[in-house]
Structure formats: structure tokens, C-alpha cells
């Protein structure tokens, strides 16, 4: 069983929902990412989603675009992200790590070379925003070879027949995009999310996590009441950016992110109880 499947099973036994924080690797600094990952785990993160920065992050809203730009300015590369995961694994063998990014850095490294290097580094799964099921066969073959999960997005616009196709190619969990829009958008409709999750669950027994538009304890509570997991990204990246803009150092940035994470964990746990 993959680390991700194991984690969701463990949470289900405990009656808890997964908190999946997203941060851009290398933002606000390359030295921040590994300590931040450990502190997120200590403060209630169940799975860590590391953003692989890309020059053209087409699905990101303004907050994460800036996160990607800062990370690239700090010299973060895909190989560098894999080194960070290796470093994290020295002290944490249990927490699943998922890489989220765009096709081209992975395409450029080569699917086979990426799969080998990512598995060796201790990466559990890959989510590429711009590789839909139609294009996924060659990368999926390599991920499966090394036992990595492939996480797919399902969107509010995904027709029922496509949901079947997507869940057929997916493993680990399904990532439901809660709204039509980019990351960090602000028009979350929980009743609508609930309807879509029901549809997805009709086709798949995989856990379903929800992301895009969850920014605080209340929105996390609302989503956790219907989903198996909650992804929070822009709000954490923004908290760090604000701390630094206000004159804080990397430590202050981490503290700001952790404070928000703790609040969101509380929101999620309130939903579950």
C-alpha cells in the first residue's frame, strides 16, 4: 500500500479528515522549505504538497504566481525540489509528500528519469496541472513502475463520463477543484462541492480531497464536513509573504504559516466531531 493510501486509511480509522498544506518549494527561501515541512507535520499536516515552481504557472492566482517567481529567483529547480524531499525524509519516513506542478520541467527531465529520481528522494505522488488523462499514459507508466501515485484533478466542469475516465487513471486520492478559476480565488460554494463529491464517489472508492478557495478555519470546516481532505495553499503562501513584507525574517514567515495552519486544523477537526 502506498504511503498516501495508508495515511487516508489511518485517518478514516481515527474519524479524522486530512489536512494537506501546499507551499511552493524554495519560497520564501530554499532554507525554509524543509524546516517548514517538519513544523507543518508537527502542527497537524497529514500530507505535504510541495509546489514545483514554473516560469508559466497558468492555473495559479496572483498569490501563488508570486510564490513561483520568488522560488525561481531563489534558484529552485525540479532537481533541487527532489533534494529538499530527500533532506525531509532523513527525519520523517511517514508523512506522504506530493509534488504539484506543471508538465514541462518533468517532460524536460524525462518521465523515466523523473520517476527514478523522485522515488529515490522519497516522493509519493505527482500532480501535474496540465497533463489531463488524454496525455497521461506515458508518465503514468513510469510512475507505476516506481510505485508512485498519480493525483488527478476533477473540476466543476468535468462531465460524468470523464469522471469515470479520470478515476480510472488515478491512484492515491482524487483532487476536486472546488471552483471554476485559479488558485486562491474566493467564491467557494460548499453545497455545490458536496453535490460533485457525491458524483465522484459514485465512480470511485478513492478518498477525495478538495482544494482552491479554502483560506481559513471556517472554510476548512465547511469543506471538511463533506470531503476526506482539505488542501490549503494560497492562504499559507500569502501569510508568509505578508510576514516578510512587514519586515519579518524567514522565522517570522514560518511562524505566520504555522499559526494559520493550526487554526485550519482546528476548523477541520470541528467538522469531523
Amino acid at each position: 500500500m502506498s504511503r498516501i493510501a495508508g495515511r487516508f486509511e489511518q485517518l478514516a480509522r481515527q474519524g479524522r479528515k486530512a489536512l494537506i498544506p501546499y507551499v511552493v518549494a524554495g519560497d520564501p527561501g530554499l532554507d525554509v522549505t524543509v524546516p517548514l515541512m517538519h513544523r507543518m507535520v508537527e502542527n497537524g499536516a497529514d500530507i505535504i504538497e510541495l509546489g514545483v515552481p514554473f516560469s508559466d504557472p497558468m492555473s495559479e492566482g496572483p498569490v501563488l504566481q508570486l510564490g513561483h517567481e520568488r522560488a525561481l529567483a531563489n534558484g529552485t529547480s525540479l532537481r533541487g525540489v527532489l533534494e529538499l524531499v530527500s533532506e525531509f525524509r532523513k527525519r520523517d519516513a511517514d508523512t506522504p509528500v506530493l509534488l504539484m506542478g506543471y508538465a514541462n520541467p518533468v517532460v524536460h527531465m524525462g518521465y523515466a528519469a523523473f520517476a527514478d529520481a523522485a522515488a529515490a528522494a522519497g516522493v509519493d505522488a505527482l500532480l501535474t496541472v496540465d497533463i489531463p488523462p488524454e496525455e497521461v499514459a506515458p508518465v503514468n507508466a513510469e510512475l507505476q513502475r516506481v510505485g508512485m501515485d498519480n493525483i488527478f484533478l476533477v473540476a466543476p466542469t468535468t462531465p460524468t463520463q470523464r469522471i469515470q475516465r479520470i478515476t480510472g487513471a488515478a491512484s492515491g486520492f482524487i483532487y476536486y477543484v472546488s471552483l471554476k478559476g485559479v488558485t486562491g480565488a474566493g467564491h467557494l460554494d460548499v453545497a455545490d462541492v458536496a453535490r460533485h463529491l457525491e458524483l465522484i464517489r459514485g465512480h470511485s472508492s478513492l478518498p477525495v480531497a478538495v482544494g482552491f478557495g479554502i483560506k481559513d478555519a471556517e472554510s476548512a470546516r465547511a469543506v471538511a464536513s463533506v470531503a476526506d481532505g482539505v488542501v490549503v495553499g494560497s492562504a499559507l503562501v500569502n501569510a508568509m509573504a505578508q510576514a516578510i513584507e512587514g519586515g519579518g525574517d524567514h522565522e517570522a514567515a514560518m511562524a505566520a504559516a504555522i499559526a494559520l495552519l493550526v487554526e485550519i486544523r482546528r476548523g477541520i477537526d470541528n467538522a469531523a466531531s
Partner: peptide, 20 residues
């Protein structure tokens, strides 16, 4: 039918746009 010119082309976009 998949929009390919040999190895090139295709539909590499986010899921939300696949329907459109």
C-alpha cells in the same frame, strides 16, 4: 483525433478547460 501532429500538439491544459 487527439490533436496530434506526429509527436506534437495535444491538449495539455487544466481539467476545468477540457470540457470547453
Amino acid at each position: 483525433a487527439d490533436g496530434r501532429f506526429g509527436d506534437y500538439g495535444g491538449k495539455f491544459v487544466a481539467e476545468t478547460l477540457m470540457f470547453a
